[in-house]
């Protein structure tokens, strides 16, 4: 009897929840704001679905109802990807240690 591929994906999902649980508990509380902005950026990997929606349709025209939604989703996700990673980088640059030279 074969196992449905869904079960494999579901296993990845459940194990990732556990990875997320342990990884996030180890995040220092002072970096909770960058944590939120970076999780925001990485969840925009949904752009992968948007690109498929825009490109993979086998219809003749580039723009049809379903691909237009794909293009819209691409621009929304792109705002998040660039905005999320850059603002995280900007915040992280500000976290500095005490200067010990005094």
């Amino acid at each position: 009897m074969e196992i449905d591929p869904f079960i494999f994906r579901f296993s990845i999902f459940i194990l990732s929840i556990f990875i997320g649980y342990y990884v996030v508990w180890s995040v220092t509380p002072s970096l909770h704001t960058p944590l939120m902005s970076v999780t925001n950026a990485i969840s925009s990997v949904i752009i992968v679905g948007a690109i498929i929606a825009a490109l993979a349709g086998n219809s003749e025209s580039i723009f049809n109802t379903s691909s237009i939604f794909g293009y819209l989703a691409i621009s929304l996700a792109a705002i998040n990807i660039f905005g999320g990673f850059l603002v995280t980088q900007r915040m992280l640059q500000m976290y500095k240690k005490k200067k010990r030279d005094k």
Binding site: T33, M36, S37, N40, S43, S44, I46, I47, G49, A50, I52, A53, A56, G57, N58, S59, N64, T65, S66, S67, F69, G70, L72, A73, L76, A77, I79, N80, G83, G84, V87, M91
Partner: peptide, 29 residues
Amino acid sequence: MPELVAGFHSLVGLAAVFVAISAFLNPDA
């Protein structure tokens, strides 16, 4: 920063909705 993060969340949500609409309308792709 709180407003920005809230705004960004809304974009992820809307992008998910758009991808789902597109998949529903054109499941072949």
